[in-house]
């Protein structure tokens, strides 16, 4: 099989507040035989906030990021749900509106770039499911996670809006009954925990303006996982990770009960199963101690 090669859009968070996600992405890619070309020229995706303020600028900046992936002739892989949403949304809007695409390209021309629409945008989770396959991943597991009950937390911007999300990957996802992360847990040998909040919102995007709402939503997610006997949680989104891992005291206060669980990035879970070292997976950067390794 030809070696898989992707253009990696890390997003901002992996390079700052979740360094463990950056490290574990590369560690896992090596184990899976994936070559990652980091898009070092890329800017922030706007995280749905720039979009509230300056929609056209956000389109131009995201189109620029995609143009760099296109220059490499590679599929763009994201490791943050919100990067995935905003980049894929840009692609969708430009590919379906030639007038808008022309306007954006007029701007990109000023810096010698062009958005063509030739690169697919896909989150790492779906890229490995589509291009490697769960069966193959299962074969590669050296340390099955069979003693763990693992609660998947999907994060909104990988599953909704489903029409947009399902454009990027072959494995259709039902946002009301998502399977991808559950299936990855099972492929890693773990027991996937079913709970109501697994496809719900963590509240990250209103953390500053509505801290109580934000904390209640995250708090309910951790509580739901705990009530269904989860040993730990796993998520494909670094923003969800920040909510669930870094401030359990706030979450506990908001929902009126003590809660806390270790929360792993999907790359860390996969890394554990594929035999990466704890150092490679960056567990020392967690706030909630990863107490089982």
């Amino acid at each position: 099989m030809k070696k898989l090669k992707y253009a990696l859009f890390t997003g901002c968070t992996a390079k700052q507040s979740t360094p463990e996600q950056y490290m574990s992405t590369f560690a896992v890619a090596e184990k899976l035989g994936i070559e990652l070309v980091e898009l070092v020229e890329a800017s922030c995706c706007g995280a749905s906030h720039l979009q509230d303020y300056d929609d056209f600028l956000s389109l131009v900046l995201n189109a620029r990021n995609i143009a760099y992936a296109e220059k490499h002739g590679l599929t763009m892989v994201t490791i943050c749900n919100t990067c995935q949403l905003n980049t894929a949304m840009t692609k969708h809007r430009l590919d379906n509106n030639s007038e808008l695409k022309e306007k954006v390209n007029e701007k990109l021309k000023e810096v010698g770039l062009e958005y063509k629409g030739t690169s697919n945008i896909i989150h790492f989770l779906y890229a490995i499911i589509d291009d490697i396959g769960l069966d193959k991943i299962k074969e590669m597991v050296v340390t099955p996670l069979s003693q763990f009950n693992i609660a998947p937390f999907y994060g909104c911007h990988n599953i909704r809006p489903s029409e947009l999300q399902n454009e990027s990957h072959k494995t259709a996802e039902n946002p009301y009954n998502p399977r991808s992360l559950d299936d990855l847990i099972i492929a890693c040998g773990g027991n996937s925990v079913d709970y109501v909040e697994k496809n719900k919102c963590c509240g990250f995007h209103v953390e500053l303006q509505a801290p109580h709402t934000s904390a209640v939503l995250s708090g309910k997610a951790v509580a739901g996982a705990m009530d269904n006997n989860a040993d730990w949680m796993v998520t494909p989104c670094p923003l969800c990770h920040l909510k669930l891992d870094t401030q359990t005291n706030h979450l506990s206060e908001a929902i009126g009960r003590e809660i806390a669980l270790p929360v792993l990035h999907m790359q860390q879970m996969l890394g554990l199963a594929l035999g990466c070292s704890n150092e490679q997976l960056g567990f020392k950067h967690h706030i909630e101690k990863v107490n089982f390794i």
Binding site: V40, E41, A42, S43, Y53, D54, F56, L57, V60, L61, R64, K107, L108, E110, V111, L113
Partner: peptide, 17 residues
């Protein structure tokens, strides 16, 4: 970001808000 000058230029020329 590398090629930051491109980004600065685009922010200056494309920003409408």
């Amino acid at each position: 970001s590398e090629n930051l000058d491109e980004i600065k230029k685009l922010v200056a020329s494309s920003s409408t808000a």
